Simulated scan of single mutants.
Amino acid sequence: MTITVESRRKKLASVEKHWPNAAIIDVTWKGAEPWVRFSPFYPHGGIPIPNTPSETAQSVEGLWQGLKVFEREDIDPRKWAVTDMSGIKRGGKSRGAVRGHRFGVGSDVLLRYRDARLQIYLPAYKWVLEHRVAAEVEQLRRLAADKPLVLLDYETNTDVEDLSSPLSHAALVMYHLQGAWPTPLAA
């Protein structure tokens, strides 16, 4: 099974030339149905928020952004309710620098970026793969059994331990399809 991640920013003709006869699937928020459902921005609903049994988020990105803590602003639960795949990101100078991600509502635990990636983002995205897009995962598995599979994403960082750039969610789809979910190195 050959699966790879390529940048959605590349010209499609270039990707097709590099990967002839491959199934090329855009798994970003700009992808076609049903593949758009792999986007972390997609509002699946019911995504469990860590250490917060009574709360869920619409999207993985909403969960991630909502738990982000800044110098002058704590979590923003409103991000968990966003369903139109826009207005989810949080940043800006007025909030100050990012201090980390809160490990659930009311938690005193503030996770650094690596730990937040491992304890918030990865479990939330895996939950979506297992509970919200299982049928689409099987479709991709069938495609990958017949020909190379190229997953398009805006981010191409496939290394969970590489904190220099955002992690590609397409890489997580690839790992899931290969039965090789990332196991973090000891801290």
Rank of each mutant, 00 (worst) to 15 (best):
S54T: 15
S54D: 15
T56H: 12
A57V: 08
Q58S: 09
Q58V: 03
S59Y: 07
V60Y: 04
G62K: 06
L63Q: 05
W64F: 03
W64K: 12
G66P: 04
K68A: 11
V69Q: 05
F70Q: 09
E71F: 00
E73G: 06
D74W: 04
I75G: 02
I75E: 09
P77E: 13
R78V: 10
W80I: 08
W80V: 05
W80L: 12
W80T: 07
V82Y: 03
V82K: 12
T83A: 14
M85C: 09
S86K: 14
G87L: 09
G87S: 10
R90L: 11
G91F: 07
G92K: 10
G92N: 10
K93Y: 00
K93S: 13
S94Q: 14
R95C: 09
R95N: 13
R95W: 01
V98A: 13
R99G: 02
R99I: 13
R99C: 11
R99L: 15
H101D: 09
G104Q: 08
G104T: 09
S107Y: 01
V109D: 15
V109M: 12
V109C: 02
L110Y: 01
L111F: 04
D115G: 00
A116G: 14
A116R: 07
A116I: 06
R117I: 06
Q119R: 14
Q119L: 13
I120M: 06
L122F: 04
L122T: 06
L122M: 09
L122A: 09
A124T: 05
K126A: 10
V128Y: 01
V128Q: 04
L129F: 01
L129S: 06
E130D: 15
H131G: 02
R132W: 05
V133A: 05
A135Y: 00
V137M: 15
E138V: 08
R141G: 04
R142S: 13
A144K: 08
